[in-house]
Amino acid sequence: MMAPPKDRYNGVWLIFFMLGLGTLLPWNFFMTATMYFTSRLAEPTSDRLAPADSDGEDLAPYNVSLGNDTGMRSLEPPRTQLQSKFNNVMTLCAMLPLLVFTCLNSILHRRISQNIRIAGSLVAIFLVFLLTAIFVKIEFSPVTFFTVTMIKIVFINSFGALLQGSLFGLAALFPASYTAPIMSGQGLAGTFAAFSMICALASGSALEDSAFGYFITACAVILLALVSYLALGKLPGMDSKLLPLLVALRLVFLPLFMLCNVLPRSYLPVLLAHDAWYICIMLLFALSNGYLASLCMCFGPKKVNVQEAETAGAIMAFFLSLGLALGAGFSFLLRILV
């Protein structure tokens, strides 16, 4: 049993929370997106409106509702076989690999290192979601799309089972209180997926664009869970060289924001056109800002003598304000460069 970790600012707690969120988030995102998946399984139709015949009979086997003044009937095609069976087959393709790989994990943990099982599973899940987002923009026949989707569900739940079993094994090496954030993260997964879908639909975008943003959001969360795991055991301490490095790395956000869909623009191309990119970048920007700024403000006064701590705190507050002012000023220059 490992000695209880020195958990500065609940950093380890938050990491386990993110990892718990990452275990069930993939499956919840797939379950919540059934409207998108079933819409891709519909047979292509060229006309959604057709008049009734002279005898008042339907011209095709469609679900019919009378129009108000147009004398036309709004036609909705019946559900196809693939659409009708989607939820049942999806559940089967999810639960079977979940059961199998949960059992296999008791054997694999002795043959495959913990880092590979956890980080490798997160990378695999991230790649599946990235492919899912890309496939939103690619046309498939209903049968091909159905098959590809089921294969992705099998992979998602196989790696999810390995991730969940390995994560609880990792938590067992820590004090019992670190199991609670894993359960809390898993509990949030369903709510987060539903909230993301509501936001995607409320955006008013076409179903294709909403689905793309929805799956990119999942990619961002899984990536954040992976980064959280890699940070476990490497949390920046007061004397850590990692802290100034992470602060300097935040400069990468400047070109990323400039390549988003900011209009009007005169010079730079738009490489990150969808709003989902901007949201994900802003999410990472905000989280890193709050976390790193808090560490700097907490560690700074402790680097000097006790009698100088108050002065150091005041100086740090001044430079924090100076940074905000300089950022506001340089924003005009960056806007011109765009």
Rank of each mutant, 00 (worst) to 15 (best):
D209K: 13
L283Q: 10
T144V: 06
F299T: 03
I222D: 05
A231W: 10
V304D: 00
P26Q: 04
S65V: 11
L251M: 12
G187E: 01
A172I: 10
F29L: 06
H274S: 11
E139I: 02
A273I: 12
A3R: 15
S266D: 09
K303V: 12
A119F: 03
S121A: 02
A171W: 10
I281M: 03
P4V: 03
L66S: 15
I216P: 06
G56E: 03
T149I: 03
W277F: 10
K137I: 05
F37C: 02
M297A: 13
G290R: 01
F86N: 01
L131W: 14
P175E: 08
V143H: 11
S288P: 02
I138L: 04
L320M: 12
L162M: 08
L259A: 05
T311V: 13
L324W: 09
P61T: 10
F215R: 03
E57Y: 12
L272F: 10
G20V: 04
P5E: 01
N28C: 04
L98G: 10
M2I: 12
P142G: 00
A273R: 14
R40E: 05
F16M: 02
L224G: 12
L131G: 11
I15R: 05
P255E: 03
V154C: 07
V148Y: 04
F212H: 04
S228N: 05
G233R: 05
T217Q: 13
V148K: 03
D47T: 13
V338Q: 15
F192K: 07
I134F: 07
E43W: 05
F318H: 08
F159N: 02
S210C: 07
L284P: 07
A180M: 12
V221K: 09
A33S: 09
A206E: 13
F37R: 04
D275S: 14
D53M: 01
M35A: 15
A133W: 04
L226Y: 11
A276V: 00
